[in-house]
Amino acid sequence: METIWLYQFRLIVIGDSTVGKSCLIRRFTEGRFAQVSDPTVGVDFFSRLVEIEPGKRIKLQIWDTAGQERFRSITRAYYRNSVGGLLLFDITNRRSFQNVHNWLEEAQSHVQPHSIVFLLVGHKCDLEAQRQVTQQEAEKLAGAYGMRYVETSARDAINVEKAFVDLTRDIFELVRSGDIKIQDGWEGVKSGFVPNTVHSSEEVTKGGRQCFC
C-alpha cells in the first residue's frame, strides 16, 4: 500500500556539470555513494518520503538535471513546475561557485509566475584540503539571495539528509502559512493521501497494486 503522504513537493537540483548532483541525490534516495555514474543527459528522476514531523510525511519528487551549460535551454523548462531547488556548487571548484548567480538568474527568469525556494549547497565538503570556496563567502552569497547554506558530502554522507529535510521543512511552512498555494496545473505542490480527509476507507486501502489511472 502506498504510504500516506501529506504533500508532494517537486524539487529540482541544478548546478554546474560534475559538482555531484546525481551523487547527492542518490545518497539521499538510495543511501549509497555511487562510485561511477553516467553523466545525466536531460533529466533523471528520484523520489523519497521524508517525515518532517511525527506522522507528517512529504513525498519528494526530485528532478536531477544535466549540468552542462548547453542543456540549460532544456532544463529551464522544468523550473516552472518546481517548488524547491537545490543549487549545488563544488567547494573544490571555484568556477562552479561563481556560476551560482547565473543559475539563480536563470531560474528566477523562468519560474514566473511561481517562485522556487532555493537551498545553496556546497558539495564535496569531504575534500577539505582542496577547498577553493570558504564557508563564509558561501554563506554571505546565500544570505544575499535569502537562501540557507549547507555543506554536504555524498561520499561521507555529511548533511545530505539535513539538506533535503531542511528545504522540505521550509517549503512545508510556506505551504502551511499559505504563502505557497496548491494550484491546478502546477506540479510544484500536490496534496496527497491524507488519512482524515479520505472519503472512504477503500480509497486508501484499495489494492496492493497502485494504479493511479
Binding site: 533529466v43 528522476f45 519528487q61 497494486r209 497502485q210 489511472c213
Partner: peptide, 15 residues
C-alpha cells in the same frame, strides 16, 4: 506503464 503514476513512469523510462 498504464498502471504507473508520473514519477514511476518517468523513472521507468529514464532507467
Amino acid at each position: 506503464l498504464t498502471c504507473m503514476d508520473f514519477i514511476h513512469m518517468a523513472q521507468f523510462l529514464t532507467r
